[in-house]
Write a protein that binds this DNA or RNA. Structure first.
Lengths: 294, 294
DNA sequence: TTGATTGATACTCTCGAAGTATGAGTGACC
DNA sequence: GGTCACTCATACTTCGAGAGTATCAATCAA
């Protein structure tokens, strides 16, 4: 009946994600027995079984599944509370803009130039971390490729452009002006099919960290990788030995600004307006490439 | 740097709401010194002053103000997590519908009749508790008079009708067909001006608990109180010694269904559809009184 | 059958949170 | 202006929840 503590939720999330008490305990930097007890106590307290354990396997019950979702939300809310309180105390109210490096479509600089209301602090992260950063208060606003449906976030589309594939300039396929996914079968493609727009899932744990575009471009140039990217990124990085070709059957990608729907910050609103204005101008300058959404 | 515990947030909210360590401690059923220490430790942990204390007065700093908002959200999220986990374990998935008693506009019964997908559990509360109930997981969906702007809730309007005043039938004003607020000056009005639509604030602590309409009607009949109410409520409770008269300069009231925007429950969606359908039918039956919003 | 793996139990210990007693600063009132 | 009431902070003590260690028990694989 009594309230849950965030500690209990953190423990639960760790176990629910690892599905293994030992590894979860390790991740939490604690011993396994107290973790087992904490979970047992949590289940007693809720009056609900969260895991089905055999001595060899741990699985989530339906109640556990729903708690995992809600617990993440709650932990984010707690983190956001402390983050924002810390920040509110600082007199220089800088706006924190999260963005995946190199994926801003060349809009970042003009947006910042157009927005001089408050100092802007940049948070450059992997694309999968942009939405969490908005949730837990690390960022006030983010620039991202939309592939999300999150009622707690509002967003405004800036650009919608087709997706392209980066090829070695010498590749036979580079002779064509447009390609289809079927033309690429057998090539080494990034993460799965590359059909996903936003790359919102974290990278597979052991995967080589492809930090920035220059690494990727090197791999593409040597022919050891194909890479999908929105047209606005391709436009921004012309490279002599790389050809960008439109992929007809990939859905177009949309670049958007997003912010917590609960945000009442005038600074955020101003930055969003600046971003929309800059995007419109950019589209007006290059009507042959870009297509605006209001 | 380490994570906040909900205990700390509960303590903080208590002090922030009472602005008095002694009373807050009493409310938390604990002694005052540990509470003072806990708040001090919280401030140290955040590296931020939350309160300005003199020995005679306690006030929130700007950081404290923002933390109060975020802490309430976070505590609600934690409560919702535990509520929903508890409920997910129950095999009979009943939908919980929150509603202020007697304010359903006669729609409650037909809605429940039209919606036979899942058993419905009714949660009857004061109007100020409907939105919190949606937030903390006590209810899945609510029927309420809209006067809220909450990005975490979605809603669908059912009825929009003018607001009326309940008078003794013998009152001279009852001779008129419509009134204006100015006609009522000097009378004893409910909570402030009665101009507020939704009554989303909790009642003043010491106020007589006007639990249900029959009590109110008694007071109105004896001429000791005037009462404002939406037309749909007046229509539902014809009483011989009470006259309802339209108040021209009160904004109309809207009855709506609302639910957490994050809800993906098909049961909620089905109930909302049923409610909208029932409301439409009701409006069609009484076109002279009601005015639908799509 | 045996060994490896993995979660649960028993027991102990420690640190942090709560209580009590008291101090100290501030405003009110005579 | 001195005294009192009020209120938050500090000092010290107590106690229990949570963490650690050692070990058991159950399951699966060979």
């Amino acid at each position: 009946m009594s309230d849950l503590e965030t500690r209990q939720l953190r423990y639960f999330v760790a176990v629910a994600e690892e599905l293994h008490f030992g590894r979860a305990a390790e991740r939490l930097a604690m011993a396994q027995p107290p973790l087992s007890r904490a979970i047992r106590d949590l289940e007693r307290q809720l009056g609900v079984d969260l895991f089905v354990r055999t001595t060899r396997q741990v699985a989530l019950t339906p109640a556990g599944e729903t708690l995992l979702i809600d617990a993440r939300v709650a932990l984010d809310a707690v983190a956001a509370a402390s983050q924002r309180a810390r920040r509110a105390a600082r007199p220089e109210q800088s706006l924190r803009l999260a963005c995946k490096a190199d994926f801003d479509g060349g809009l970042l600089a003009p947006i910042l130039a157009a927005y001089d209301t408050t100092p802007v602090e940049l948070l450059l992260t992997g694309p999968w971390d942009l939405v969490p950063a908005l949730h837990d208060g690390r960022a006030d606003v983010a620039l991202l490729a939309t592939a999300f449906d999150d009622p707690t976030l509002d967003s405004e589309a800036l650009l919608t452009e087709p997706r392209m594939v980066a090829l070695p300039a010498a590749d036979p396929l580079a002779a064509r002006t447009t390609l289809r996914l079927a033309d690429l079968t057998g090539r080494r493609l990034p993460n799965g099919s590359g059909a996903e727009t936003g790359n919102l899932a974290p990278p597979p744990p052991g995967s080589p960290a492809m930090r920035d575009l220059s690494q990727i471009f090197n791999l593409v140039e040597t022919g050891s990788l194909l890479w999908f990217l929105p047209a606005w990124v391709a436009r921004q990085f012309p490279r002599p030995h790389i050809a960008y070709r439109l992929v007809e059957d990939l859905p177009p990608a949309t670049l958007a600004v997003a912010w917590p729907a609960a945000s009442r910050s005038p600074a955020v609103a101003a930055l969003v307006r600046a971003a929309v204005r800059v995007a419109k101008d950019a589209v007006a300058d290059e009507p042959h490439v870009s297509q605006a959404l209001a």
